[in-house]
Design a protein around this nucleic acid. Sequence first.
RNA 1: GUCCCCAUCGUCUAGUGGCCUAGGACACUGCCCUUUCAAGGCGGUGGCAUGGGUUCGAAUCCCAUUGGGGACGCCA
Length: 492
Amino acid sequence: MAEDIRVRFAPSPTGHLHIGGARTALFNYLYARRQNGVFVLRIEDTDAERSTDESVRMILQDLKWLGLTWDEGPEVGGEYGPYFQTQRLDLYREKLEFLLERGHAYACFCSSETLEKKREQAMATGQQPKYDGTCRNLSRADAQARIKAGEAYVVRLKLPTEGTTIIDDRIRGKMVFENNVLDDFVLARTNGLPMYNFAAVVDDAAMKISHVIRGDDHISNTPRQILLYQALGEPLPAFAHVPMILGADKTRLSKRHGATSVGAYADEGYLPQALTNYLALLGWSFDDKTTLFTREQLIDKFSLKKVSKNPAVFDPAKLQWMNGIYIRQLPAEEYVARALPVLIAAGLLPEPLDEAARAWGGRVALLVKEHLKIFTELPAHVSYFFGETVELDETAKEKMLLAKERPDLFKSLHQKMSMLESFTHKGLEEMMKVLLAEAQVKFGDLVHPLRAAVTGRANSPGIFEVLELLGKERTVKRLAAGLASVGITTEN
RNA sequence: GUCCCCAUCGUCUAGUGGCCUAGGACACUGCCCUUUCAAGGCGGUGGCAUGGGUUCGAAUCCCAUUGGGGACGCCA
């Protein structure tokens, strides 16, 4: 590798890991792996009010859940650490001094109230709400004096008033900004803490980030950042702005659109490989055919050139379909390992689990493996396996009615079942075959009412598997109850 | 309001001037398979926002319009 590829994901710990953030992290991760580069995780916690340790914990956990392991960052360290911005304050102070000394930055004493008022006024009158430069031309001496006198101030970057700044984006090509539409933005707050644009640039430079891959909501920050790199005398990284992820109404994805945190999807029983695959396809594609990718394939195929420019609408239905695919691909043991806790949580299986319950629960879960799209729907699929009796739903009641046409057949079925020695798939099937031949009826005529009586619904996995797992006692009891509900009485 | 970005089926997208009477996937839907439901197989509905150019030839290039999104913080 001629060039050292270093990318970073830099979340602010002000909440959980968002779907959009996860996609950005994924693209960075894939790019780093593909290019044999380094994936850095940096926590941008300079907003003292909103940053929380709990958020840091959740974000790290969700990244790990997705398998997006970072090479440098929290917990693993690295030679460019520390990786929390609040632990890098000395660096920002140093750079601030550097800019101040060179006249690239200046102290501003305008109060936030005044600025807020001006901004509102500008917006209202259709003006551009940019800083008006009140303190821009204060002499350094005056400024020093006011600072000494204890006046509160922020530090702003002094931007050129003419000329243009060009972003040469890896995904979008060249974007041109007139410098005069930019304003002297704040580098450091009154309390001395750096602002986003400043800390991000200082760190990206210090951490030798070669490619800044981030959401396109950052495009308008980029010219400011470029000017800042120049003021700092630092080389520019390559920029790649990936399109945003929108909700169904085409506005920025937010809570209004349902679950938007990675953690919520994890809790709902989505598989990390499914979410990863789905997210990869939001704004990126490989060709005109392939939709399913293993992690290795994603790493192998990923390229910034194939990232699209237009925003993508998040489609929960497609994610769900994809999750179903991955569930079906799960090896049986792994599937069972995921299924049992769900059944326990639903109160269907006891905690702790004894060997028998574990084995039986696993077999029950396996029966509906092909039917599941998400693990949270598992309990609903298998609820009739638990408890002694079942209540028939409407569709089941309808099917049950069919039994009235051949009461004798079902009485006979009931009797044979209660006397059946080997209550297994094979034993049951053989017994029924004989019964059907004797009565001269089709299997369908028998199976629908039977299924209804035993499961309480009109559909289920294969009836023999269901009966075998349910066991003779409950099957016979439920069949009798079902028949009784349509007026067919059974002896014994 | 100002600046920036974007524009192919409902959604995700393939497509970089002729291979496109536009391909795939989800969703919807018909049929097959079948003990039901899924799954699977085979079909179907559905799209190049509009108007101008450029060209022998435009989904593909240019311009305008329209539409959508984003940014304009002592948030990130």
